[in-house]
Design a protein around this nucleic acid. Sequence first.
DNA 1: CCTACCGATCGGTAGG
DNA 2: CCTACCGATCGGTAGG
Lengths: 196, 196
Amino acid sequence: MPPIKTHRTSTKKEVIIGKAAKLFTEKSFVGTSMRDLAEAVGVEAASLYNHIQSKAEILQILCFRVANILMDHLEKIEVNKQSSVEKIKSIIRFHIWHMINNYNEVQVADREWRHLSEPYLSNYKVQRKNYRQRLAALIESGIRKKEIKSIDAPTAVLIMLHAISGIESWHRSEQKISSEQLEKNMIIILVEGLEI
Amino acid sequence: MPPIKTHRTSTKKEVIIGKAAKLFTEKSFVGTSMRDLAEAVGVEAASLYNHIQSKAEILQILCFRVANILMDHLEKIEVNKQSSVEKIKSIIRFHIWHMINNYNEVQVADREWRHLSEPYLSNYKVQRKNYRQRLAALIESGIRKKEIKSIDAPTAVLIMLHAISGIESWHRSEQKISSEQLEKNMIIILVEGLEI
DNA sequence: CCTACCGATCGGTAGG
DNA sequence: CCTACCGATCGGTAGG
C-alpha cells in the first residue's frame, strides 16, 4: 500500500523545499547547486525536476510563503480592538515566534529575495513595502494617541524588523537564553522603551 | 609624467575593490562573476589578476577592513572616562556614521563574510564574537552601575548591531529622513529606552 | 593590459 | 528515478 498523502502538496516536494531552505541559509541561493540539493535529498540532480520546475521556483515558494504568513497575521491584528502598543507587541511576538520555528525559511526570505526573477521580484518588493508601511502606520497611530514617544515611525520599523532577523545570531550562539527570555527581552528593548 | 601614487596601495586595486563592494552588495559575492567586475572596472577579466590575487582576496580585504575599523574605535572608547551609556552611544553613532559613509563595504562585511575561505573565516568569526562580547560587557557594566535597565546584554547587542545593518533599507528608501535625524532616532530607540 | 584558452561546474533536458 | 548529456559560464593561467 502506498503512503497516504495528507497534504495537497506532494510530500517529496516539501522535503526538497525544506532541504533547500537549509542549504540556501548556509551557502546562499547562488552558492547552492542543484547537485548539492540533490545530495541532501538523496537523489540525482535530474530527479529533482520531477518535483519542482526550477531552482528559481524553490526561492519563489520560500519567499512568498513567509511573506504571506506575516501579512496574514498583520491583517488579523489590524482589525483587533487593542491599543496600538498591544498590537505592535503582538506583531513582534509573532514575528519572533515564526522566526524561531521556521528559522531557515525566514532567513532565506530575508536574505535571498534579491535573487528572485521578475515578475516575482517586483511583487515581493511591493509586499515588503506594504507590510512596513502598515506597521509604521500602527506606530504613528500610537504616537497620535500618546501611547508612544514621538519618534520617526519608519526608523522604528526598520529597527524592529532587522532586530528580529538578527535572531540568526542568537540561533547560532552557544550560550543561548531561552526563546521565552529572548522574546521578553526583545519586547522590553524594542517596545517598552518607546512607551510614554 | 606618470600619476603620483599617494597611497601605499595601488589606486587601481582600490578601484577594483570599490567596484567589487558595489557589485557584491547588489548581486552577492557568489552571484558576481569576475567578468561582471571586469566590465565595471573597464578591463578584461584576465587583467584584474595583475592587481588582485583572486576573487577570495577581494572579499578578505573588504571584510577585515570593516572589522578592523570598528574594532579600533571600540578599543579607543573602552579606555575613555565616560559613563557606560555615553560609551555605548558613541559606538552606535560611529557604527551608523561608518555604515552611511561606507555603505557597500559594510554591507559586504555583514552579509557575505560566510563565503570567506579558511583560515580567514575562522579568524573573522573570532573577531566578530570578540567585538560583540566587549560591547555586551559595556552594557553589563552600565547595568551594574544602575545606568541601564536590567536586560540581557547579548540580546541588546544583537538588536543594536542588526538594527544598524538594517540602514540598508533606509539607504534604499525614497522618503529618507536625514542621516542626522536617523542617527538621533536610532539612539533614542536603541539606547534611551534602556536608561533608568 | 590583451587574446586565447583551461578544466570544472552550472542549471536544465532527453529519453527511458 | 536514473544515465547521459547539452551549451553556458565560472575562476583563473599562459604567454606576449
